[in-house]
């Protein structure tokens, strides 16, 4: 136990750490501090004029119905993406963990989605649901006689974006669940069988608890995805429309900051988003980790 060597040089660890510290500072700490600073100002588009407004940007944020609606929408969106995504992917992973001929082909198909860029994924989904020419729209019309148009149906648009977002994360989640499943010792499952547990019982009593570290990890990754990374998908598919129906917080931030060029207001939004996700993550670590079983 005492064999672990210590660095005799006090400076060396810091030198070795410095590249990552620089990266964190440049890409994380400096922008964060700058955002916080800018959120107290109203800045002209060209940056030549600025007025100190104190907390006005924040006050306005929470008094704006558009923002509060966007916040609620984001919560609905993130909950749906995480819940549907994780439960669906777990099922897919269990199915992919069977011993069937040609399984590697199936696995590749399911993991594929993660390799597709958000822009292409967005285009594919947008094309499939194109009100005039989309194959899905055509099929729905054949089967139900109804013509669906997500360009003037906000709820449908949100639903489709949720499905697309889940689909996009499919590969990522499935890989982790597959790895998790394969790490489960077969003795445990065999023992459960001998004790008379059927397939469903085995899954809920043995597999599911043993997957909990993976689930916990994926929960956080998917939440971060639903809050931040869906930007590309939404930008390509709906641009937040129709009529703000798919305008989640991160897209609203982009629109206010980069289309309206209201840097101060957008900075205030990014600060709120940052605090929000930080709090959510801490809460999850606090309350979920107790239930996670690390074997």
């Amino acid at each position: 136990m005492h064999a672990q060597s210590r660095f005799p040089n006090k400076l060396l660890p810091y030198i070795l750490l410095s590249p990552s510290i620089v990266v964190i500072a440049v890409f994380f700490i400096i922008p964060t501090v700058k955002s916080i600073y800018q959120s107290f100002f109203r800045v002209s588009p060209f940056g030549d004029r600025r007025i100190f407004v104190g907390f006005d940007n924040f006050v306005r944020l929470f008094n704006s119905p558009a923002y509060v609606q966007s916040l609620l929408r984001t919560l609905i969106f993130a909950t749906a993406v995480v819940l549907i995504g994780l439960s669906f992917c777990m099922i897919v992973a269990v199915l992919l963990n069977q011993r069937i001929r040609g399984m590697s082909v199936f696995r590749t198909f399911f993991i594929w989605t993660y390799a597709i860029s958000p822009a292409i994924a967005g285009t594919i989904w947008a094309l499939m649901f194109n009100p005039a020419t989309g194959p899905v729209v055509y099929l729905v019309k054949l089967l139900s006689g109804k013509s669906i148009n997500w360009m003037n149906d906000g709820r449908l648009a949100l639903a489709i974006v949720i499905v697309a977002a889940v689909w996009k994360m499919l590969g990522y989640n499935v890989i982790f669940y597959l790895a998790g499943l394969q790490a489960i010792p077969t003795e445990l499952l065999e023992a459960a069988s001998i004790d008379g547990a059927n397939g469903i019982k085995r899954f809920f009593r043995v597999t599911f608890p043993l997957l909990s570290p993976t689930t916990f990890f994926l929960l956080i990754m998917n939440m971060l995805y639903a809050f931040f990374e869906v930007f590309g998908l939404i930008d390509i598919m709906t641009k937040g429309g129709p009529g703000n129906a798919t305008e989640v917080l991160v897209y609203k931030l982009y629109k206010d900051g980069f289309i309206s060029i209201d840097i101060g207001f957008a900075s205030a939004q990014s600060v709120v988003l940052f605090v929000f996700v930080t709090v959510l993550t801490i809460l999850q670590f606090r309350y979920t980790q107790q239930k996670v079983f690390y074997g």
């Binding site: 588009p45 906000g154 129709p242 009529g243 703000n244 289309i259 309206s260 060029i261 209201d262």
Partner: peptide
Amino acid sequence: NFVAIRDVVDSAFEKALQ
């Protein structure tokens, strides 16, 4: 900031059509 105003009106149009 007409760019932002256009965006607001476009959204209003989309809402109206729903």
